[in-house]
Structures are given as C-alpha cells and as structure tokens.
Design a protein around this nucleic acid. Sequence first.
RNA 1: GCCGGAGUGGUGGAAUUGGUAUACACGUACGACUCAAAAUCGUAUGCUGCAAGGCUUGUGAGUUCGAGUCUCACCUCCGGCACCA
Length: 764
Amino acid sequence: MEKYNHKKIEKKWQEKWDKDKPHKAEDFSKKEKSYLLIEFPYPSGDGLHVGHPRPYIGMDVIARKRRAEGKNVLYPIGWDAFGLPTENFALKTGVHPKEVTKKNTDIFRKQIKSLGISFDWSREINTTDPEYYKWTQWIFLQLFKKGLAYKASVAVNWCLSCKIGLANEEVVDGKCERCGGETEKRQKEQWMLAITKYADRLDKDLDDVDYSEPIKIQQRNWIGKSEGAEIDFDIKNSDRKIKIFTTRADTLFGSTYMVLAPEHELVQELKSQITNFNEAEKYINDTKKKTEIERTAEGKEKTGVELKGVTAINPANKEEIPVFIADYVMVEYGTGAIMAVPAHDQRDFEFAKKFNLPIVEADLVDMDEVIEKVKGKKTIKYKLRDWVFSRQRYWGEPIPIIHCDECGPVAVPEEHLPVELPDIKDYKPTDSGESPLSKAKSWVNVKCPKCGKMGKRETDVMPNWAGSSWYYLRYADPNNDKALADAKNLKYWTPVDWYNGGMEHTTLHLLYSRFWHKFLYDIKVVPTPEPYQKRTSHGLILAEGGEKMSKSKGNVVNPDEIVETFGADTLRTYEMFMGPFDQVIAWSTNNMVGVRRFLEKIWRLQRKIGDGSDVILDGTIKKVTDDIEAMKFNTAVSTMMILVNELEKTKEISKNTYEKLLILLAPFAPHIAEELWDKIGNSDSILSEVWPKYDSKKTITDKAEIAVQVDGKVRATIPVSIDDDEDSVKEKALSNENVKKWTDGKNINKVLYVKGKIISIVTG
RNA sequence: GCCGGAGUGGUGGAAUUGGUAUACACGUACGACUCAAAAUCGUAUGCUGCAAGGCUUGUGAGUUCGAGUCUCACCUCCGGCACCA
C-alpha cells in the first residue's frame, strides 16, 4: 500500500475540480436552491493567516453536504478590495492601488484554492472593478433621488492619523476602529445616508429572520429603540418652550431643574435673556474643543453652567425651576434637552448634589395620565444616527454627483455610470480634509448635466462599507451590464439562506446591508424585505499563546506551511475539530497531529476491505448529519473518529461501510475522500454520491445496560431489553448483588424506573 | 453602570437538554515491534486511598429520587454598549 501522500493527492484533485467545475451553481435549476455565503475577504498584502479560512471551511462543509443531498448550492467568493491599507501601501511603494489589489487577490485566490474550498469561482466579483462599482454608484443615485442621501454639515469623527471622517460605527472608545488613532469632532460638509428612516424596520424585522440571539440583541441595542414622550416646558417671560424627551413621564413631579446640551440652538436664541451669557459661551466653546475621549474620560465628574435669567415652569406642578447647560446632555439624542429628576436618575442626582439643587421624590402616578395632563406627545427615539458616507481618500467609489452653482448637487445621469476613478499621480490625503481627487482638475471640472454650465464633481469617495452592502446580490448574476442583477436571477437565488460572518460586523456591515436591501426592496429592485434568512458567526482563531495573531507580534501561523507539511485536509479537519465553531480558540499545531493520525487511519483502513459485515452506521450518519447543520463540526469529527477506532479493531470491513464513511468524511477532507473513493474502484467522483440516509429507529441506542442508583449514587448496572416491563426491571434491580449490599437492612421507600435510562431506589 | 456569553482533568474540549460527568483529541507513563530511533500498535491515565470506599463540573445555598444542566446570591474571565434622558 502506498503511503498517504497529501501533496500529490491534493494537487491532483484540485486540478481536476478546476477543470470539471463540479461546484458551479446552476441558475434556475429545478433542484432546491441553497445560497450559502461567507463575508468576502479584504485582500491585504499579508495574505491569509490560519484564522481566515475557518468560516470558509465551515460553510464549505455545509455546502458540500447539501450538494450531496441534492441541493443546487450557490457558494460564491469575491473581493472587498477598496480600502485604506491598499492605498497606504500604494502610497509607500508608489505602485498604483489597482496593481496592488491585483497582486493581493492573486495571492488570496491561490491560497484559498490550495485549501480545496468548493467556491463557484465562475462568479468571482471585485468591488473595485468599474463594472461592479457602476452599480454601487447606481444604488447611491437611487438613494439620492429618494432624498435618503443628502449633504449636511455635521460634526464628524475625524481620525487624525488616517485623515478621514468616520461613521459612528467606526469609532471605538473614541478611537479610530482601523488604526487606533485619536479622533476629534470636526464640523464638515458630508454626504449622509438616512439609515434612521429605517430604524424602526431594522429593529422590528429582526423578528422574522433566523439570526443567532446575541446578534439580534446587539443590533437592537445599537438601534436603541426607546419609547417615551415629548413634553414642552414653558419659559418664564418668553414665548419659547423647551421640548424634552423622557421615558419616565411619571417622574415629572420630581423634576427640579432642566438641562440643555451646550450646542442646543435655544441657548443662542435666548442670548438676550441670559444674564451670564459670557460664562455660558465660554463653557460652550470649551465643550467644542474637547475631543470625544476627553469628554468621556473626565467622565463622571459633572460640569455645567446655569443660564441665569432663564426660568422654566414644570408643567405638572407649575413650579419655577432653573435651566442649565451641561455636556452630559447630548445634542444628537432625543431633543437635546432633558428634565432632570435627581431623585430617580443617577446622573441628575450627581449634578444636583454638585450644584445644590433640590432632590424631590416623585409620587407614583400613571404615565399616560401625566402625558395627557401636560399635553405631551408619545414618541419613539433611536440611538442610531444617520450614516456618514463621505471619505476624503482616493481608493474608493467616486460619489456620482456634480455640484452646480445654479442647480445644487445633481445626479450623474445613469447612462454615464460608472464614474471611474481618475488616474492621478498624487493621492495623498490632506490635513485640510479635502479629498485627493480634487487635484484631478480635468476630472473635477465638468458640465452640469441639468443646465450645461460648468460644475464640479463631488471629490469625496464612498466608505469601504459601500461595495459590501449589496455584493450578495451581484453573485446571483455577476456579469449583468443592464442591472445590478436580473430580476429573475434575484427571484431564484435570494434571500441568502445562510450567511456566516464575524461578530465584529454586527453593527457595521450587517446593519448597513440590511438597510440598503430594505431600500432596494422599497424601490422594487429586490424581491425580499430581508437580505439574509439566517446569520451565524464564527470565533476568532488566536495564536498559540492565546494572543491575537498579528504581524507585529510575529505569531502568525501561515496556512501555506501547514498545507505543505500536513496537508489541506488535515488543516480543514483540524479547524473544524479544534473546538466549538462560534467560540474564540487558540491555535495548536500539537493538537492538529491527532487529526492527521485520524486521516492516516482511514487511509490504512482500505487494506481491511473484505467480507466484513456492514457495521450499523445509522447513529454515526445521524450525528454527523445533524451536527453539520448545527455547526457542531467538532463533535461531527469526533463521531467519525469513534467509528474509525471501532473499524480499526475489526479484522475486515465491508466495502459499503467504508464507502459510507468516505462520503461522510468528504465535506471535511475532500481530497483524501476522493482519492480513496477512486482507489477502491469507483469511476465516478465522490462528489456525485448521495449523502447517506439513516434509519432513525436504529439510531435510538436501545441501551443494553442501565444504571441503578441507590439514594442518588450509581451502585450497579443491569442488562435490560426494550421490551422488559417495569416490574420485571425493578425486580431485576432489587435482586442485584451490588444493589443488595446497599439496601440491606434498610426500608425501601420508593423505586423509580425511567424507561431506558435509569432505576432509582430510595431507602428510608 | 447596563446588555450578552462562559467558568468541567496536566491541555483543547464532550455530555442525548434533569438520568452512569470527563466522549474525542493532545500530552504523559509503561509495554510490543526494532541493533537503535522514528512511525505504528496495545494498556493505563479526574483527585484521594493498599483496598472497600470517599470526593469532584468557579463559590455558597436551594428544588428534586437524581443537578455540569433548573432557582437564588456571590466571584472571575470574554464580548458589546455607555453621561442615550
């Protein structure tokens, strides 16, 4: 018998799959469709590390199994290739981002192919391809036409080192999500997408999809739906009112002062009435100067200034109460103003203590009655903010808008799409925040499509989340030049049946793409209200010491080396076996050895094929089948290991048993499965084999033995058969020698028999 | 602070959802094969004890014939959110 030579085998079958394309999905096939999706990678210059393919392998196992079950599986791949690292690398080396991207995707493609993932490579897409981003721009224009893309002057989170404005979702602990650098607020004209218009549906429709519970909860928290009421407070000697939002209208009687956000416009409007306006103005300017980190780092110590001369009237008890500005109230949320109830709110309490304000317990009253009495209005507020969509960099999709002095922002006519990125020499970002594209004068200066006068192109580009917000639609029809995808294709393939990705994208990509999809649904481009029927997540793979893998720490495990020395099948099966799929786990090359041994055992089993009787496989088949669908890949593998250990002990095994084992193994270790399938005399590929069925009656292991407990402790096991009646089993248990030893001289109070499981004897 | 998730051998982890805790794998020890080593195979391996037995799923209580699993309180770790009214 030849030795198991993974290099030879894996090369052989990968070349065959490349040629025969057995993983190609068929549009409009009569078979039941199954659209499986992983998050398409960003092709970085470093290539893959061993953690990247974990989700690809997991979904590949499911894809291969479902094909064997007769489904028409779409399992596609592409490249999310716009973004900063490529641009930064290009800036450093002088190589154009386009070329960097080409080089990186070539490396990634080669690496992924070396793992034998069954992607349908005929549908490969790339977000930086003009034929692709043409449709990203097209979607933007539809948003623009419906008023959901608009330009506004907003305080954006500005990353000082990337020199780029960030969306709220991209700021973590006041720092840039990408580079970890400090951010500050800058007032800038930005393109915004009105995701808040969809807040309600993005929250509510989570009821209709099969996402894992933590994902739903995290999205709901981020959307931050909060039901309450808006109530107007009169201002003494003024016809203006202060509108507040509260979820606790029932505490209105305990409101002893009010707070406006420093940036609240009412502060300026009441200027003439405020006797200490200089003091207030200084506080407002100080607040503006603070970066996000400073504002939260100073944290708990409350600051503020009373607006002297301004007195509000509590509508519940008509009491006159003072009005403050303080930075613990945010302009962006609610109405930017609050009624403070120090007896019932921790923050108000701290503030009241510091400023010696009265703390009054509110009587328990009915919320609805109070709202009605003070003529309040029930409303719902969300924490979700509109999406800052402008980026002042080069390597992104140009926003297809032309600014005209006469007409304002005008959409580029659809027949002029794509607006391609101009080739420019200098695409360095600028401190002023002006996009590098503004330097391409001949590109920028164009005629207004509406009036024909000279106008200027928008020079901001889209964020890297744009192309990924709809890519799963393109896979349904990747080469269409009339539409983002043909309606027929979308009707056949969408929604995505199962989408697996990282938990870190829950409030970014996942939410953004749900928003775009809902919009496309509203304008009747896509046939379903939700893009993804089911969403699961995978755990990160850490380095051996339990730290995150990173180039700088030098602890990156390269899959190429593992494939070279152990083989792709070992790598694949180990990544499935190492632990629960959704859990963070540390890499261990030592532990991987066990999986290699397992595959070698299967390899050697081929010698034993002979007259052996069929081993009852039903239990194994059921367990592997169910575990794969539940993503419990680790126990699926261990179930096969148990079977293989058993087969090793027998002299001869039947061909049928061995073949079934190979079919079960194939989704995990496809190369060795194909090779062995071929070696034992099959002319067809194992890929055309049908997933084995099991007899569910035979999977119930009618245990030959059950345990006997005396006073809660197992004292014996006795043989029973499924037909034994209760009394005879009890009789058998009580007459057992070991049991007698423990019941001797005691009263037997109770004997319980749980069929097929246990006998419990209670003595007194 | 709030919202999730998790604590099981020397290690990664199993446990049919209330029914024989520690499957599977790594590691370790001993044995077989070998001149030898590697590979492979076999046996053992939660702790304690010569043994019978006792103890054991982060800690403490509770429910139950029976708890890793359910309830309450607490501790620790991981993830998310955070002056959000």
